[in-house]
Computed example of a mutant assay.
Amino acid sequence: MLTEKLTPAQVEQYNRDGYVVIKNFCTAAEIEKLYHTALDDNAMRNNALDLNDQTGKKTRLSLWFTPGNDVFGYLTRSARMVSMVKQLLGDKAPVCHFHSKLMQKEPKIGGAWEWHQDYGYWYKNQFMFPDELISIMVALTEANKQNGCLQVIKGSHKLGRVNHGFAGEQVGADMEMVNNALKTMELVYVELEPGDALVFHSNLLHRSEANLSDRPRWSVISCYNLQSNLAYNETSTSYKVPVNVVPDEAILQWEPESLSNADFLKKENDPALKETGWESV
Rank of each mutant, 00 (worst) to 15 (best):
2 L>T: 10
2 L>F: 02
4 E>Q: 13
5 K>M: 11
5 K>D: 02
5 K>S: 11
8 P>T: 06
11 V>I: 14
21 V>S: 00
30 E>K: 11
32 E>Y: 04
34 L>G: 05
36 H>P: 00
36 H>S: 14
39 L>G: 08
40 D>S: 11
43 A>N: 02
44 M>S: 08
45 R>F: 00
58 K>A: 11
59 T>P: 00
61 L>C: 08
62 S>G: 10
66 T>Q: 08
73 G>T: 04
80 R>P: 01
82 V>C: 07
84 M>W: 01
85 V>D: 01
86 K>V: 01
87 Q>S: 06
87 Q>G: 04
91 D>F: 05
93 A>V: 12
94 P>S: 12
97 H>D: 05
99 H>F: 10
102 L>E: 06
104 Q>M: 15
106 E>V: 04
107 P>C: 04
108 K>M: 10
108 K>R: 09
112 A>E: 11
114 E>N: 15
123 Y>K: 07
129 F>D: 13
131 D>P: 02
132 E>F: 09
133 L>W: 01
135 S>T: 03
137 M>C: 14
139 A>V: 13
140 L>V: 00
141 T>K: 12
142 E>F: 08
143 A>V: 03
145 K>Y: 02
145 K>F: 00
146 Q>R: 04
147 N>L: 09
147 N>A: 12
151 Q>E: 10
154 K>G: 03
155 G>H: 01
156 S>W: 02
157 H>P: 02
158 K>A: 00
162 V>H: 04
163 N>H: 07
167 A>F: 00
170 Q>G: 15
171 V>K: 03
173 A>C: 01
175 M>W: 02
176 E>S: 10
180 N>Q: 11
190 V>R: 01
191 E>R: 10
192 L>I: 06
200 F>T: 04
203 N>C: 14
205 L>S: 10
206 H>M: 01
206 H>P: 02
216 P>G: 13
225 N>M: 04
226 L>W: 03
226 L>Q: 11
233 N>I: 05
240 K>Q: 15
244 N>V: 02
245 V>L: 04
246 V>A: 09
248 D>F: 09
263 D>N: 15
277 G>K: 08
278 W>E: 15
278 W>Y: 14
278 W>C: 15
